[in-house]
Design a protein around this nucleic acid. Structure first.
Lengths: 142, 142
DNA sequence: GTATATGCAAACTGTTTGCTTTGTT
DNA sequence: AACAAAGCAAACAGTTTGCATATAC
């Protein structure tokens, strides 16, 4: 988080961009929560702190983070995009709760390896992969 | 394919639905090609055989197939939905070529098993999962 | 003062729906 | 004749963009 912020500062300066209170608020909210926010969700949240923030600004800010590598755009089984804060560059996968919508991350080296084997069998040159497990989280199982 | 068609016939009768040449054309085209069609792609194709077919009809037809279980809606890393013919009820995953867009299916029991283990560790009640490997297919590697 | 950030409304893409007309039974 | 299918245009959701204004430097 702290590193992300200083990285961003340098990035903005390098690109000749300016600072902005609203953008900072959005970015802070996004990075500290460490969730997989949809744009609308994050918008609803930051609006409570500053009602003058517009949806476009949230969009533009998240796109900015994605462009400089501090966020990843993800598309789960939904129509909308979610943004995930990037901390370290380690690949991970997701468990998605179908009831509460919470998203859990996990890593599994064995699965990674097996995926690479599959790709090799098909002579595929792998760029990335994505594994999502959909179900009900412990809290939502009743 | 043949079984799918007779299943459909019964389904339509049971639901009090009627027949239609356009719908049959769309369904035939979809089932015989056995591809992961986007609606627009299938629309472009069937339009060549019958230019009077409208986009809505393609949408409605594919939704019909999805509702009676003969097609699955899939969302890859795109904004649009793709439909995949369902033959047997076996779960499989996908390799997606980032250049030509072709989609290859594969199954891997070991990966399935490892996914279930992960889910168990998180006390997740699994409904479905989805694994996609993105990269370049043999033909597109240059 | 100049360039960027923002708000707002309008455009845009993929999808769905309402209503009228066409087609099947 | 009655009711489903299809065409068309309009509505819709999520996202992007153009332009005028506000803000940072």
């Amino acid at each position: 988080m702290k590193e992300s912020l200083s990285f961003l500062t340098h990035y903005l300066k390098k690109e000749g961009k300016k600072n902005s209170g609203k953008r900072n608020l959005i970015i802070n909210s996004f990075l500290t929560d460490d969730r997989h926010y949809s744009v609308e969700e994050l918008y609803q949240k930051v609006k409570r702190q500053n009602p003058k923030i517009s949806l476009s600004t949230v969009y533009r800010t998240l796109k900015l983070l994605a462009n400089c590598g501090l966020a990843h755009e993800r598309r789960f089984d939904e129509r909308n995009i979610r943004f995930e804060p990037v901390h370290q560059e380690e690949h991970h996968d997701h468990l998605v709760c179908l009831k509460c919508g919470r998203i859990f991350e996990f890593t599994n080296q064995k699965i990674e390896k097996l995926q690479d084997e599959v790709a090799k069998r098909y002579k595929f040159n792998v760029v990335r992969h994505k594994l999502e497990i959909y179900g009900y989280c412990p809290r939502c199982q009743k």
